[in-house]
Every structure is written in C-alpha cells, then in structure tokens.
C-alpha cells in the first residue's frame, strides 16, 4: 500500500533521514522504532507532505505522493496524528473532530463517523462541547486519534500515541489501535514504547540516526537481543 524508496530528508544541511526504504501492506500495523533523533517523526511528516524530501520517493497504491501539498495528501487517504497531539485546545471536541473531516463533504458520512468516534471513546461523547484544552493527556490522545480517524483514512499514521500517558491509558490506546486494524484501517505507528508497539505490530523497522538498521516481524523483534537490550532495557 505505502512504499517509501530511498527517502532523504534534511533540515538545512543536517540530514535527519539518510535514505530509508520501507513498505506498509494493506491491513497491517507497522512500527517505526528508534531512539530520539532516529528520524521517525521526520519520516511521518514527510509522508504527510509537511516537509519536502531532498530525494527519494513515496508511493501510495501505485501513485507518486511526494511533492503533493499536505492538504491534498489527506484527501488521498492518509491521516496523520502528529507528535504532541497538536489539538486545537480552544476549540470544542466536536469542532476538533469536524476539522479532522475537513476534506470531506458527505454530511451523513461525517455524522456517522462522529458517532463511531463517540462510541469508541465515550468520554469524548460526554464532553463534546467542551474545549479540548481542558482534557487530560489520555483524553487528548483519544481525541487526537479520533480526529485522525474522521478523514476516514486508509492509512493512519500515529506519532507517539502513548507519550506521557499512564500505563493503563497506554493499554487503552493500544487496544484501540488493534480495533482500528480489525476494522480495516492500516496503521503506521511511531513509538518509543517498543514493547507495546511490537506486541501489536505485524512488522517493525528499527531506525538509528536516519537509517534503518534492521527489520522483522513484530514477534521476532520482541525476541531480538539487540532490540531487547536497546529498547526494552533488558540486561542480557
């Protein structure tokens, strides 16, 4: 479904992503793992068109994606829930969600998806007219995910959904991701919490300073010594 080829991204003269290639198949959950500065967020931002790559290609379903402006990429079926959630804190929950559906004009479908999000996250439904800035971190993350779902994406990119959340909240979020996959959404996940991410993932890519070091299925990576030492903090 998504194909990234030799992607190079730079901020000024500093290369953040130094030629990575990976692919995401339909219906999968794929994780990008790595320490700070590995280039995970940059990769997502490039795919969603917020940054222009220096070289390399991004393909979605056999169509070239790089060079397309960000707002047009949303209409192609990619939703990006950015790092730090980037909600509109002074806008209500409902307005936030409706903004997620900004590119759509089918009112009936939007209403239906609103109800779907409220069913998935009842907290949001109860407080739909409150400004999202008043919410706790976990609730905000739910809203960020719900908002990303509102564009009815085929590919959902989540950047650090568990950041700053309690273990219980992390579990809830991860369970939701699994549910999303079950309902047919493909997910590209960036996580620091490797344990949680890999348990869910069909495939994982481990990045380090802008390069993919190795890749495998989620299960295999969970058992991989290098991963266990670096990301799971196990002393082997």
């Amino acid at each position: 479904m998504l194909e990234v080829k030799d992607l190079v991204v730079a901020y000024g003269r500093v290369q953040a992503v130094k030629g990575i290639s990976f692919s995401v198949e339909e219906g999968q959950i794929v994780s990008l793992l790595g320490t700070n500065g590995a280039g995970k967020t940059t990769t997502l931002r490039t795919i969603s068109g917020l940054i222009k790559p220096v070289s390399g290609e991004v393909w979605l379903d056999g169509e070239r994606l790089d060079g397309t402006p960000a707002h047009a990429i949303v209409t192609r079926g990619i939703a990006h829930s950015p790092e730090g959630r980037k909600l509109f804190p002074r806008m209500s929950v409902e307005d936030n969600l409706l903004l997620g559906a900004f590119t759509r004009r089918d009112h009936a479908g939007i209403k239906q998806d609103l109800d779907r999000v409220y069913a998935l996250f009842p907290v949001l439904g109860e407080r739909r007219q409150q400004p999202s800035g008043l919410f706790s971190g976990g609730e905000q993350q739910m809203l960020a995910m719900g908002r990303a779902m509102m564009s009815r994406p085929r590919l959902l990119m989540l950047d650090e959904p568990s950041m700053g959340l309690s273990p219980i909240m992390t579990q809830t979020i991860m369970r939701t991701i699994a549910e999303l996959r079950a309902s047919g959404t493909t997910v590209l996940l960036v996580e620091q919490n490797a344990q949680a991410a890999l348990t869910l993932s069909d495939k994982g890519y481990v990045l380090e300073v802008g390069r993919i070091m190795f890749t495998d299925t989620g299960e295999a990576l969970l058992r991989d010594d290098r991963v266990r030492r670096t990301y799971l903090g196990l002393d082997l």
Binding site: S48, L50, H71, V74, K86, L99, F102
Partner: peptide, 17 residues
Amino acid sequence: RGWVAIREDERAAEAMG
C-alpha cells in the same frame, strides 16, 4: 472552522487537510 483552525495552529490545520 478551517479559518479558526488556522488562527489556532497553522501547522496542525495543514495536517488536517
């Protein structure tokens, strides 16, 4: 709604399409 989103956070608005 798009205008208010731009006023609040231009980058996030762009990511919303």
